[in-house]
Design a protein around this nucleic acid. Structure first.
Lengths: 204, 204
DNA sequence: CGGTAAGCTGACGACATGACAGGACAAGTA
DNA sequence: TACTTGTCCTGTCATGTCGTCAGCTTACCG
């Protein structure tokens, strides 16, 4: 619906919005500030987006598309022995770095979803689903082989574990407040993940 | 600093703000709406609070004070055998209901903390600390008795587990999206909590 | 009752929002 | 180069919120 030049300014507005979200509270992000930063006027912003929230949804959509790479972290992976421990470490690593790269927009998506906005919930479900799905599969397979507790719900356990990882990822600065060293975080998350999936302590 | 009548309108403004936060997105909560709902004028609002955020901090402080009851859930509790399973169930239950009762304000506190606002981080630390502290103690004690893995960090594990519980609590509506029944949630959270604290599967 | 202080509000300048009409600009044509 | 065309951008305006102040109202006390 827009030409080459139009696409460029539209993209620039999105980029500036993203920067804005990283540097100031969501509540205080104003159309006029985004427009100024992009070297354009508020009227231009409204030509491409209904409001700030609308533009944020675009950013979130883009992020959700990129998040498909997350599912590779957990699909068709083994969860036994040392290889299983490595799987856990890689999932933790992958999630944490994805969250670090997209923390601003993920924060807003989380808020929107928590407030009950279906559009944000859907995006959040897509991002998390990329991980919880394969994880739940793995747990299910372990169950059918008798290698995991049979009276747990793979979906609930996988969802809860992923919630743990993303929540910690989103509040990484807060980690020190509860008295844990920053370097402790990753290995202990991997430990809990392995434990949750397999029901056993990891053999490192 | 204020007489009887002043305290009353101040409190009324806070109550209305809380209702506002429950019913509309944080981003859209306006001083004028809060004032109108409280049957007063915007100018009155500014007499008691510097802005919406300032009033939210008051609400959050109040909530943090009430959260001290949470620490009783996890202090001096046993984590062995069936009694341990009951401990886990009660911690999950207590946290989930506290979150359900205060979801609106907790949402905003989480956002503020994630955005790096020290005032919100402090409040969040106080609320979570009431649970993570005792939990970490329990894990430490189990460790010294040789009943838990010795190369984990009690603080990191406790913090991560509490993050999991609060994150799931804050997105309860989303739980169905990952394909788990609502009734599955609590027992599976208790399972993961028990597993994380003790390193063993629960004996129910 | 009358006086005093605490509490509330109308009104105002400044600023953000969102809509429109018309101006600026790139690209193609002669 | 001058002209045309369609896309893209912005000046401007009505509306509404923000945050402040002077002044009015209310409650309380002697």
């Amino acid at each position: 619906m827009a030409g080459r030049r139009g696409q460029a300014t539209r993209q620039k507005l999105l980029t500036c919005l993203d920067e804005m979200l990283s540097s100031s509270p969501y509540r205080d992000v104003r159309v006029i500030d985004v427009a100024r930063r992009a070297g354009t006027s508020p009227a231009t912003f409204y030509q491409y987006f209904p409001d700030v929230e609308g533009a944020v949804l675009e950013l979130a959509d883009e992020m959700a598309r990129e998040s498909s790479s997350l599912s590779e972290l957990a699909t068709d992976r083994t969860w036994t022995g040392k290889a299983g421990w490595q799987t856990a470490e890689e999932v933790v690593d992958g999630l944490l770095s994805f969250w670090r790269e997209n923390d601003a927009i993920l924060r807003v998506v989380d808020l929107g979803a928590a407030e009950g906005d279906k559009r944000f919930s859907k995006i959040r479900a897509k991002v998390l689903g990329g991980i919880t799905g394969p994880l739940a599969d793995s747990i299910g397979k372990l169950q059918s082989k008798g290698k995991a507790d049979s009276d747990i719900s793979p979906a609930a356990v996988a969802g809860s574990l992923v919630s743990m990882l993303t929540s910690v990822a989103g509040q990484q600065k807060a980690a020190q407040s509860w008295g844990a060293k920053k370097s402790d975080l990753k290995p202990n998350l991997a430990y809990l993940l392995y434990l949750g999936v397999t029901g056993r302590k990891p053999s490192r």
